[in-house]
């Protein structure tokens, strides 16, 4: 399991979102950020630079 996000980055992003955490909340959310880091690790290597996102998702159309 990866490390949580760097603390400086974490605090900057909370400030950017306008979210004010108590010290206990900050510790809890920061600890959980390792799950986010794990998900990002899985997604970052993209084999095909031309791959379009499913930005507007459509399961199927007639």
């Amino acid at each position: 399991m990866p490390e949580p996000l760097p603390e400086v980055l974490f605090d900057a992003m909370m400030a950017r979102a306008g979210i004010q955490l108590t010290p206990e909340e900050r510790a809890s959310v920061h600890r959980a950020s390792r799950h986010l880091a794990a998900a990002l690790e899985r997604l970052r290597p993209q084999p095909d630079v031309a791959l379009e996102p499913a930005t507007i998702f459509q399961a199927a159309r007639p």
Binding site: L5, E25, L36, L40, P53, A54
Partner: peptide
């Protein structure tokens, strides 16, 4: 409250990478 605070850590690039993988 804490789940949404965690969600605030996802960047636009992260979101688009996820949508690319989704495709």
């Amino acid at each position: 409250r804490e789940r949404l605070a965690l969600a605030a850590l996802v960047t636009a690039a992260d979101y688009l990478q996820a949508q690319r993988r989704r495709r």
